[in-house]
């Protein structure tokens, strides 16, 4: 139980995917123009992540290591298509809003990353806890970012006007530049908060979160050593 909670909770803060690990940036940036979209995308990711973790973990003994990546991709793609169909059937406007980012969930490095790093090595229950935790963390982050951008960019939250008439929406916030800047500033604030804490503990300040997706980690070094 303890272990389950540990695997579940790490995705909520310690390894919060978009902020702490800086993973899965495309949907984070693209679909967070409104809180609603962020939430919807997050739900889709929760579903795919949890289920793909579950399936990969179930099949982990059957999948030959050589083609494991191909199998992970096939499994998550299947789930993505399923989510796509269900979304079309039950929430078409959301499907329209999210556009090609729904099919692109399949190349979200979080999904593959969790399959490779966790589900392939752990029993189904833990894998589900991990996927659920990560997914919820991802959803919360997306919703938060979406709310922020929606409020700033349109003066509404989940489509309801929340700012007074005096408020002139910063339209740029719901467009691409706003997405980048908003996320950048948020990351910086988080690091700042962490640094304040570290300072209290007498530790040296650290720099902002580093982008370090499993597959990209080594490339700077690789290129250097050529």
């Amino acid at each position: 139980m303890n272990r389950l909670w540990k695997e579940f909770s790490k995705g909520l803060w310690k390894e919060l995917p978009p902020f702490k690990l800086v993973l899965g940036l495309c949907p984070v940036l693209a679909v967070t123009n409104t809180a609603n979209n962020g939430l919807g995308m997050g739900m889709a990711v929760i579903a795919v992540l949890t289920l793909s973790n579950f399936v990969v973990s179930l099949l982990r003994k059957l999948i030959p290591p050589k083609v494991r990546i191909a199998c992970f991709i096939a499994i998550s793609a299947t789930l993505v298509v399923a989510v796509e169909l269900l979304m079309q059937a039950f929430s078409y406007p959301l499907y329209q809003q999210l556009g090609i980012f729904v099919p692109l969930i399949v190349v979200n490095c979080i999904i593959l990353g969790r399959s490779e790093a966790f589900a392939y090595k752990n029993p189904p229950l833990l894998a589900v806890a991990d996927g659920l935790g990560m997914g919820i963390g991802f959803t919360l982050s997306l919703t938060f970012l979406g709310s922020l951008r929606e409020v700033l960019g349109a003066g509404t939250l989940f489509g309801v006007a929340v700012m007074g008439d005096w408020f002139v929406p910063l339209k740029i916030m719901v467009q691409a530049p706003g997405a980048f800047i908003c996320l950048g500033v948020l990351l910086a604030l988080m690091t700042y908060a962490e640094n304040v804490q570290r300072k209290r503990k007498g530790l040296a300040a650290v720099q902002g979160a580093t982008h370090d997706c499993g597959s990209c980690g080594g490339c700077a070094n690789v290129a250097k050593s050529q």
């Binding site: 059957l62 999948i63 030959p64 083609v67 191909a70 199998c71 096939a74 499994i75 793609a77 299947t78 298509v81």
Partner: peptide, 9 residues
């Protein structure tokens, strides 16, 4: 394995 997974999908 790969084909089977695809087929089942």
């Amino acid at each position: 394995v790969l084909s089977l997974i695809c087929g089942l999908s």
